[in-house]
Design a protein around this nucleic acid. Structure first.
Lengths: 133, 133, 133, 133
DNA sequence: GTGGTCTAGACCACC
DNA sequence: GTGGTCTAGACCACA
């Protein structure tokens, strides 16, 4: 799986990495049970410090997206992803509200906003059901 | 207009303030040409630092949402809000992609995601056309 | 508040620190809203690295025992401690089961085990309601 | 006797195995003099490494819970289990203090804590005097 | 070789 | 001055 980081961005590297990994899981490039590269090798590949990768992995583990398996190393959660919890919904709505407000101010209609969200959702899951791995 | 800050949140106060102000404009509580409180008084009201309010105002001015007049003080942009620029669209899509990916992983369908975005959009512009407080 | 670490112990420093802080809260030496020393100063006082202190603070924050306040720094959770969740009960029972099994093997009776737990509980909350701070 | 390991747990496998074996002895499923599976066969059954089983057996032997005979293989200590030593009491209290402190913070009373310990003790020795499986 | 832990030292955003 | 982030380099427990 291809990971792209912007070391100049104002969003922390570990957060970008989290985004990319979540994106990979959503798109189907990473399937439940799939092994992830070791902390060290991924860090080397990306040219960043192993602690940064570690932080991303740990946060994703906390949220239930990953498991740290004693033998297989780090793998994508095989026992069912976390569902749509209240906490998640609240966070989702909170962040979406910011986007919606800015969009509304700039003249985007409800319909356009909804269309954008649909389009983005579709590209996010683009490879679902495909045969990679 | 009522502004709510969370001093325990991980998002910086200046960013929360920006969010709230944009929200106020979107909802119609703040209309083009409306005056905003002076940096000093708002800072005092909210119990935060002058610099923090200043930073928020300046960033909003940069984006074209506010105007700063020597005499009138700070007012909501009366000469037409910025439109849907490419930059804005890109940013919108980027952030929405993160939300969509996480939502998809947790089992939210495209339809549900679009419905959420619609619902959030509607609450964001709830008072449009009404009278501001 | 006095904190005692054993740098030779096999339990990680950050875990010992967590234990001590939880102990301090339970005993009443640390009250809700009380400020904790800054990461740097505590690290220096204890002769350990600031990252180690940081890790402890962050884990306690995650569990809801601490808050990171934008102005006051790190403080003891003022808005009510987390309650007796299912997760907590399960963890409590799991760990207590190990203790009980070993105690039973060595000939400790149910009554003695319960008495021990009572005694330990009492010493844990020894200063509750006192007037320190 | 049924042994359950969690490869995703943060507690090492050898420690989990120790816990399970101690639990088995406490509950009466394993009685003094009973033979334990050979290192090799247990490792195979559980799908773990030989060294891991070995480590558990050795630690249990050190504590006096097991005996290792050249001929009979590994058996549960037939000559009387170790008693309630000062070391053991200290360790017990130390660990129980952590549990008690966390429980107290979350609002569990001394009475409830003692009841929990009683209940856990009882389930730990559930099959005592009965026939092992 | 894996993740876990710790240290030392640095820069930055925020207030 | 505060916490947040990142780097570099090291040791250890585990399997």
């Amino acid at each position: 799986m291809f990971i792209e980081l912007d070391l100049q961005s104002d969003t922390p590297i570990y957060a970008q990495l989290i985004d990319q990994l979540i994106g990979g899981i959503a798109s189907g490039e990473l399937k439940p049970g799939d092994p992830l590269p070791s902390v060290r090798s991924l860090a080397e590949d990306l040219g960043i410090n192993l602690h940064t990768v570690n932080k991303s992995y740990n946060l994703l583990k906390q949220e239930g997206y990953l498991q740290v398996h004693r033998k297989k190393g780090v793998i994508v959660q095989p026992d069912g992803m976390p569902g749509i919890t209240d906490d998640f919904l609240e966070k989702l709505r909170h962040q979406m509200r910011s986007l919606a407000a800015a969009a509304a101010i700039r003249g985007m209609s409800e319909e356009e906003f909804a269309q954008e969200s649909r389009a983005v959702y579709r590209t996010a899951i683009k490879n679902r059901g495909g045969e990679q791995q």
